[in-house]
Nucleic acid binder design. Sequence first.
DNA 1: TGTTAGCACTCTATGTTGTTGAGTGCTAAC
DNA 2: GTTAGCACTCAACAACATAGAGTGCTAACA
Lengths: 345, 345
Amino acid sequence: MTLDERKLQILETIVREYIQSAEPIGSRTLSKNPKMKISSATIRNEMADLEEMGYLYQPHTSAGRVPSEKAYRLYVDQLMTIMELGGILQEEIKSVYNTYMDEFTEAIQRTARLLSRITSYTAFSMAPQAKHLNCKFIKLILLGEMKVLLVLVTKERIVRNYVITLTQPASEAILDKVGNVLNICLKDITLYELNDSIMDKLDALTEEEKSLLLEMIPLLKEILIEEDRQRVYADGLDKIFNFPEFADDIERAKKFIETLNHQTLLAHKLTENIQRDLSIQIGEENVEEAFKDCSVVTATYKIDGKPIGTFGVVGPTRMNYDYVVSVLDFLRKEFNAQISRMIND
Amino acid sequence: MTLDERKLQILETIVREYIQSAEPIGSRTLSKNPKMKISSATIRNEMADLEEMGYLYQPHTSAGRVPSEKAYRLYVDQLMTIMELGGILQEEIKSVYNTYMDEFTEAIQRTARLLSRITSYTAFSMAPQAKHLNCKFIKLILLGEMKVLLVLVTKERIVRNYVITLTQPASEAILDKVGNVLNICLKDITLYELNDSIMDKLDALTEEEKSLLLEMIPLLKEILIEEDRQRVYADGLDKIFNFPEFADDIERAKKFIETLNHQTLLAHKLTENIQRDLSIQIGEENVEEAFKDCSVVTATYKIDGKPIGTFGVVGPTRMNYDYVVSVLDFLRKEFNAQISRMIND
DNA sequence: TGTTAGCACTCTATGTTGTTGAGTGCTAAC
DNA sequence: GTTAGCACTCAACAACATAGAGTGCTAACA
């Protein structure tokens, strides 16, 4: 059996209507749609075919049809149309980044909030992993006799602080010198490449400085491991209650909220498809148990063409893909532009 | 009518049992309790009295009795016993702060997580407001021609970063000098007192430095306003689903989660009782709509005897007050000790 | 006078049954 | 190939019956 033009159109209409109503679509309902020029009986025949092909199923005999995940997959791959966002919406998105956006992390958090608000789905976002960042410089500041504050600034102007506890006392002068060595080593390399390049620079240092530096390297490593625990933010958790498929099933809602509170799980979810500008995962395509009846759409943001982080939304499989994808695509581009402006001024 | 010994004991037992079971307690059930030496008929009479006095009510005729909020209030004020925490639990709490606790904010977040885990209620915590913090020093670092990174370190070793955009270019030398002036002004005063003390120091500066400094003061102010948006963290949102009174009522669960996602509302909740070491708010005592059928227990942490922040839990009014209060009281003391250790080493 | 057993009464929760209506598959006519 | 017609199915809803837990009241008892 083949998916001819008419079958496609019926399928598309069912998907569209079901996304709206969340109610199984019957042949009679469908025949009333002005786009449908054929009778309900004919539609029934076609529906039976579509069911056989795996695009539709009935929750029970004598109910209407519901799109399967295969249908949604077909829909997003072939039928969906990405639209241009309305001017007001575009302005709203841009304005979020215009005001007081000095901190990258802040921008990431705001993105989750914005996404959740304008899509009405639950949204999440992820700050870049340390390993993807290029160091601009570090500064060592003496806090106490044995305590050093390490301020790390990346090219992307992400600032991170770490307090390091030393085993030997240090002075400001020594810290400055060690800081300089670290700066030379770190210039334009990612933090992960640090170890290799640092050893050649040791000769110019006094014993005291050398031992301090060597002491700091494993601490730096530890920090990076800690740092690698990605920072993810979720917003609009309550949005899930707006969808009857979750609101009527506490167990499902609970699982959903549990999962979104689970940092590492979320982080993994957001890293999975970091190589693609946009990614759509439908139902069972998600490995996470709680998302197996959800769809997750994520977008990647980049620096110098290199993907470093993602954000996205999660909602029921009958998600408004057209709109969500349109928003994410616009937001992705806007965010990229915003970053390069931040870096290059 | 007076609350004699027997009435009190009956009331206490009802509260205890209802906290466990979440089911209305009937006279027969109660008479089976080994502590009760009287018959169900007598208990019925006493219950009728207690109901008349406003301590109990019936969800409907022919149901058992349920404690009113007045009963919980009496319970926490007079009947509850704060117990010593088990050694294992004490160790668990201490260990959370032992490992890698360099950042105050991290400690605050961990506290919410810990609280939620050991109490099985939803927990939240709040980082100190800037206005309560004493500046230790600031450091100005040149990021770009017109961009300055301000690193602010407080006595409590809280580190915050702000990127400031200038209207005139600055050099490292100037920044250092301005930084020094700021440091002298800020020494041991709270950030809010800055404005007054800064004007006398201006004379020693060159015109260029002076204008830079004057430019930075309103920016600092703005930052502090922004900063005053308190940072609150919630954890264990899903815990609420474990309680039938919420799990069976989606609308209530939704409201609850909405409120906990509402930063400013939460911040307010946590600031309300900052003057008291421990505070218990039961049901209608909460002003927040979503908490009107919850109880909120908060504890305050201090620096140098001055309260600067709080954490707490929120759950159904039939909360296990004995345990929660015991935990919060222990945690409060432990946290205070931890802070003073951090500051004074 | 306080305590208790007994009893009629109340009301929710649960289960049963019947009805309605939306939707289907199949058949036969167009 | 398309469509009208019809018998059939099944969830959703309402109406009704039943069981059980709990109460208040009364009268007897210590």
